[in-house]
Design a protein around this nucleic acid. Sequence first.
DNA 1: AACATCTATCTTCCGCAAAC
DNA 2: GTTTGCGGAAGATAGATGTT
Length: 225
Amino acid sequence: MQVLDEAHKQRKTGRFLFLTLTAENASGENLKQEVRKMGRAISKLFQYKKPAKNLLGYVRSTEITINKNGTYHQHMHVLLFVKPTYFKDSANYINQAEWSKLWQRAMKLDYQPIVNVEAVRSNKAKGKNSLIASAQETAKYQVKSKDILTNDQERDLQVVEDLEQGLAGSRQISYGGLFKEIRKQLQLEDVDAHLINVDDDKVKIDEMVREVVAKWDYQRKNYFV
DNA sequence: AACATCTATCTTCCGCAAAC
DNA sequence: GTTTGCGGAAGATAGATGTT
């Protein structure tokens, strides 16, 4: 939230987008390489000329859900911070179909992947309500341990093993572009702040940024605060 | 301290199109 | 029909960065 707030301060006119990138299900033994592939594909995706043109920064998080048949559905939730010119015309704006194509290219898939893209509306009037609505929505999508744990112990062990192998050494969240720099700056400042001023952590966070974060959490269907 | 991952940069590759 | 030139993307590598 602090990173986003700072980014928003530096680039007042920037807009936030949610992007969800998916791929077809993976089996346990493929999980790790699939997740790695997605990570690499994402950095490639944002190097493509059109997306890079207006991209200021991004945060991505990895999510893996478990299917009943023992396969895994891995996908990435990305929060994009773009210049306002992104919405200007078709030379800048990337619609859902185009995102899908770009993602397909980056991932070298022989099928059209499912991609969800959504702009965050900065409607100040509805700001509070939609924040609350987002929070409520989030509550509905609590990640259930039921997904992981069943009565079948052998299966459970395999699932945990797969997840461990698949996620080992990969970050759940990573930052890119402007966000990365800001995060670094904030970390440095944090150190100083602790040394000099202990109780000055009441940071004013812009309402819009709160809304973005809440909504992103909802999309990620996770509960990191 | 050792290891893994990420990033930046450089080189190679590919496809398109213009020129011959 | 073949060659040449160009731009963008893929691939590789090394160095930086982050993790354990």
